[in-house]
Design a protein around this nucleic acid. Structure first.
Lengths: 187, 187
DNA sequence: GTCTATACTTGGATAGAC
DNA sequence: GTCTATCCAAGTATAGAC
């Protein structure tokens, strides 16, 4: 691994743990085991480095979600596979955490990356739900886009509630609750 | 208003806008129009001041939610009143934002206040839902605690999604989606 | 009680040697 | 390319005058 890669990996780790605003270049350099100058040689500054770290997170997440949503043999099963997949619940969602960070929202580049990720997720979920309506699994009136937003939101909110309680049980409750509601919405 | 009150109000404002970690004593003093010494005269430091600001937020929110959930004449209407109430969506939830802040989670006092608030909210929602099951409005199998967690989570996640997109439409979609699912879960 | 002054640390970035 | 040294601003807290 190059020093450049070390910097990106260290940043990914710290972004998840501390967020963007609270992650200092010094901390990144410490974790990466690099000296002061390296970061500014490879990147313009903290923001550019974070942008690349976020992009790498996005790639991994897109792969993971694509796999999740292909699992099982019905719309509800696809959604269940996505929702109950093993997660580091108490660390929160890599992207949801960033969306709450004022410094991220204040940076068009960083906020754009987060927005794109969530937009993509909602589109994937909407496609699964629309297919379920199409196939007659869900009742005809179900709005795919809104339901997709609800599923994505429940997951994000479940992280928030679990983090505040430092207890994964709340996360599981919220996820099981929305799955029960989806199951009840079948035709 | 006393200087002490000014400090608490300034802190409430900044906590909402910037979070806890990113809110400096200097910024608080500027907003409150107070000098350096005042804050340390009235409070031990930033954490103690934040604790009082959060407690004041909690009082207001408890009142608001109590009112919301008493509105309308069925469980779904109570929940709808809570969910669609006018909000400053793009600023996020005062408590949800804090739950994502690493410095808050690292402070037992602050995290405890946030946890208590969310616990209270889930209990209120669960009571409304349980009454709906009891009255026969919802189908018998509906789990009140889990569904309450889902409703609370959807709201929190809706804030996250809307903030990342800087667009309230996503918030509305998620909220309408969960209301549609709840409506479909009636007996 | 409130103010100014100050101390020490950290954040973010640059300069310049090797 | 990577390092050490350094700069300036801000964060957090304290001291002491009024």
């Amino acid at each position: 691994m190059s020093t450049r890669d070390d910097l990106v990996e260290a940043t990914r780790e710290l972004l998840w743990e501390r967020g963007y605003g609270a992650t200092s270049p010094r901390a990144i350099l410490d974790v990466a085991g690099a000296g002061q100058g390296s970061m500014y040689h490879h990147f313009r500054g903290k923001e550019a480095l974070a942008q690349e770290a976020i992009e790498r997170n996005a790639e991994e997440m897109r792969e993971q979600i694509t796999t999740d949503l292909a699992s099982g043999s019905s719309a509800v099963e696809h959604l269940r596979a996505y929702l109950v997949r093993q997660r580091e619940v108490l660390k929160g969602c890599q992207f949801g955490r960033l969306a709450q960070d004022a410094d991220v929202v204040g940076s068009p580049a960083l906020r754009g990356a987060v927005e794109e990720m969530f937009g993509w997720i909602r589109a994937q979920l909407a496609a699964v739900i629309a297919a379920g309506v199409e196939s007659g699994e869900f009742r005809a009136g179900l709005d795919a886009a809104k339901t997709a937003a609800t599923v994505a939101a429940t997951l994000q909110g479940a992280y928030v509630l679990a983090r505040s309680a430092q207890d994964v049980a709340v996360f599981d409750d919220a996820v099981e609750g929305v799955l029960a509601l989806l199951t009840a919405a079948r035709a």
